Amino acid sequence: MVVTRDTTIGEVLAEDMGAARFFFEIGMHCVGCPSSSGESIAEACVVHGTNEDELVSKLNEYFQSK
């Protein structure tokens, strides 16, 4: 999987629930709520005041290491 800023949280978690830890690490503890599943990484990062590029990079490193 290649993650972009437009990838939804739901798409990431559907691919691998282990990726949830990266959301938790930056304070996104709502990854299980229904509305977050359709939210893009960019949208979620704006709401939570976090760096989307850093999160996308970590997620891509995780998926590439599998």
Rank of each mutant, 00 (worst) to 15 (best):
33 C>P: 11
29 H>E: 05
36 S>K: 01
53 D>R: 12
64 Q>A: 15
37 S>L: 05
32 G>K: 01
45 C>W: 01
45 C>H: 03
39 E>V: 02
5 R>H: 13
10 G>F: 04
24 F>Y: 12
6 D>T: 05
52 E>Q: 05
52 E>H: 10
36 S>F: 09
66 K>N: 01
59 L>Q: 10
3 V>S: 12
40 S>A: 05
60 N>V: 05
62 Y>E: 02
19 A>H: 03
8 T>E: 04
65 S>G: 02
5 R>V: 01
57 S>F: 12
29 H>P: 00
35 S>T: 08
17 M>V: 14
13 L>I: 14
65 S>H: 12
27 G>M: 07
15 E>A: 15
48 H>P: 10
44 A>L: 07
65 S>P: 02
52 E>V: 13
63 F>T: 00
54 E>W: 06
5 R>G: 15
61 E>L: 10
15 E>P: 00
28 M>A: 13
17 M>Y: 15
12 V>S: 13
23 F>E: 11
30 C>V: 03
35 S>K: 01
37 S>C: 03
23 F>Q: 09
11 E>Y: 07
20 A>M: 15
43 E>K: 14
9 I>H: 05
45 C>F: 02
10 G>N: 04
18 G>N: 14
31 V>D: 09
43 E>Q: 15
64 Q>C: 10
22 F>Q: 13
9 I>K: 00
43 E>W: 07
55 L>D: 06
20 A>K: 11
37 S>T: 08
47 V>E: 06
7 T>K: 04
34 P>A: 07
42 A>L: 13
49 G>I: 12
54 E>K: 00
49 G>Q: 10
22 F>H: 15
12 V>C: 14
22 F>W: 15
48 H>Q: 08
56 V>R: 09
31 V>H: 06
20 A>C: 08
47 V>H: 04
48 H>C: 11
18 G>I: 12
63 F>S: 04
65 S>Q: 06
48 H>L: 03
18 G>W: 01
42 A>Y: 11
21 R>I: 14
7 T>V: 01
29 H>T: 06
52 E>F: 11
6 D>K: 09
35 S>I: 06
45 C>R: 01
46 V>G: 01
20 A>W: 06
56 V>Y: 06
39 E>P: 00
29 H>I: 14
19 A>R: 14
45 C>V: 04
6 D>L: 13
55 L>V: 08
54 E>P: 00
2 V>H: 10
24 F>S: 02
44 A>Y: 04
28 M>Q: 04
16 D>F: 07
2 V>E: 15
24 F>C: 00
43 E>S: 13
51 N>G: 06
53 D>Y: 11
29 H>D: 05
22 F>N: 15
20 A>L: 09
15 E>Y: 10
11 E>S: 14
40 S>L: 01
3 V>Y: 01
52 E>C: 08
48 H>V: 00
65 S>K: 12
5 R>P: 13
15 E>K: 15
57 S>V: 06
54 E>Q: 14
47 V>P: 02
59 L>C: 06
57 S>Q: 14
57 S>E: 15
58 K>G: 04
35 S>A: 02
33 C>A: 08
17 M>L: 15
13 L>C: 12
37 S>W: 03
55 L>G: 14
62 Y>R: 00
46 V>Q: 09
46 V>T: 04
45 C>N: 03
2 V>W: 08
19 A>Y: 07
58 K>A: 12
64 Q>N: 15
44 A>H: 01
